[in-house]
């Protein structure tokens, strides 16, 4: 029997998805948009390492922040790499330092993934930007 790990170290890659594009044109508050960006993709092996249950959330943490989201399996990803679609949830873990270029780093970011946490709604994310909970 394989013992589940508390957390795994990963390289976080962000980017666009077609579903995200379709959703944002419907409207950012739409279920279609929120569902398309409030998740990460990871490989089946890494999901198994963390003993993730189908509907259980995961928490992604970098040295700049932490956010809890849903997860889906993506067989084409290699172990140790997650894909996080651009959006308000992914933005919680990026550094705003641009090293004099204007551009924050949003790809190939070192992160950890662990099971658990509470997934926030879009309103809660915006409230947190306002200084709320």
């Amino acid at each position: 029997m394989v013992t589940a790990l508390d957390k795994i170290e990963v390289t976080l890659i962000s980017g666009r998805t077609a579903k995200q594009g379709v959703g944002l044109e419907e409207g950012k508050p739409s279920e279609s948009y929120v569902d398309s960006v409030r998740l990460i993709q990871l490989c089946p092996g890494d999901a198994e390492k963390l003993d993730l249950k189908e509907d259980s959330p995961v928490t992604v943490t970098t040295e700049h922040g932490s956010v809890t989201v849903h997860w889906v399996e993506e067989k084409t990803l290699e172990s140790g790499m997650i894909f996080f679609p651009y959006g308000p949830w992914a933005n919680q873990v990026y550094n705003s330092v641009t090293d004099g270029t204007g551009m924050p780093i949003m790809k190939a970011v070192k992160a950890t993934v662990e099971a658990g946490g509470k997934v926030q709604s879009l309103t809660e994310i915006v409230d947190s930007l306002k200084g709320g909970s």
């Binding site: 950012k28 933005n91 990026y94 705003s96 924050p104 930007l129 306002k130 200084g131």
Partner: peptide, 23 residues
């Protein structure tokens, strides 16, 4: 934007021209 940068928009008076509701 990274949350650290976006947060400042809530601290200052922000005017937004937009068609739809967004964060």
């Amino acid at each position: 934007f990274p949350a650290d940068a976006a947060r400042h928009l809530a601290k200052i008076p922000t005017i937004t021209l937009e068609q739809k509701t967004t964060p």
